[in-house]
Computed example of a mutant assay.
Amino acid sequence: MPKAVRMADIARKVGVSTVTVSKALADKDGVSEEIRAKIKETAQEMGYQQGAASRRARTGSTGNIGILVAARFVHDGANSFYWELYQRVVSRLLTANYYGILELLPEETERQLALPHVLQDGKIDGLIVIGQVSSDYRRMLQEKMLVPTVFLDTYDSGDTGCSVISDGYYGMYLVTSYVLARGHRKVHFVGTLDATSSISDRYFGYCRAMMEHGLSVTPEMVLPDRDEHGSLRFALPQELPSAYVCNCDMTAYQLISQLKERGLQVPADISVAGFDDFRVPYISVPEITTYAVNMSGMARTCVDALQQQIHHQHPVAGIKIVSGHLVTRDSVRQL
């Protein structure tokens, strides 16, 4: 890894003091325009990158973006969808010359409506909130609006700000339509409807596909899949449909495991489809039919919207929807 260029290195090459280099890069007085230009040119040639303190002194910007994720969404660590989405956001921030500072939001902090630490010390230019937080906590962040903020993979009916989400409604409509096109008619949905806005959207996409095929959806056709803390936990009913569509691939994977424990084979005895196309479909046997969420597109749209707010190009509000695509594999059979 190449050694970082220091101000002293620039000073040595130009033939001035380190103090002079510091003043020149911060656009402070006490340096002639000729020397200032020479120092900046040399710094650029040598690949010098200014730290947050220097950047703030020069532009009023810290170069940092806070990234807030509810702790309940990353309990699976590296296997979490939101951990992967966080990494995509950080990568996009780096291309925009920003650093991402991650903070996990404990449930207690959320209940107390306490500000996250990243908003308490004035060291960030903007905030990205990944995943669902309570309506009260979201409202508190929007009312205080200490920095420009974008909500990623979540939205709320009372929003006045900017949200970026995947196309959960149309995506699950496509997944369910595919399962129905394979001849299934007794199709149930797996997901806790009030857990997140994303799951609700996917449920309504499922309902639309069922309705278009002349099929009614009743309460017993919905299997909740998580507890009040967001942990996946569900038990199969005795009477099973011919197919399940699941709100996420992790749920689909656990469902397949439970069906195998009952002595059933997927898709020979029962078909299963998921949503996200996040890692799990590739380790499952059989591989899972799913809807691929465009995480890179969501990260790009989110960071671009935040930059527009930071630079006051124009106000950013409303919901931005990023579409993905259907991925058909081996977990749904033709009847």
Rank of each mutant, 00 (worst) to 15 (best):
M1P: 08
K3R: 15
M7G: 04
T20P: 02
S32E: 06
I35Y: 02
K40H: 04
T42P: 01
T42A: 12
E45N: 11
Y48R: 03
V74Q: 01
G77H: 08
V89S: 01
P106M: 08
G122I: 09
G122T: 08
I128Y: 04
I130T: 05
S135L: 09
T149Q: 01
T154W: 09
Y169F: 15
L174I: 00
T176D: 06
S177A: 12
A181S: 15
H188N: 13
A195R: 14
R202M: 02
Y203C: 06
F204C: 07
A209L: 09
G214I: 10
T218F: 06
E220N: 15
R226H: 14
L232I: 15
C248M: 07
Y253A: 11
Q258D: 13
K260F: 11
K260T: 07
V266M: 08
V272D: 01
D277P: 06
V280T: 10
V285T: 14
T289K: 02
A299C: 10
T301H: 03
C302Y: 02
V303Q: 04
A305Q: 06
L306W: 04
P315A: 13
G318M: 10
I321G: 00
V322S: 09
S331A: 10
V332G: 01
Q334D: 12
Q334E: 12
L335E: 14
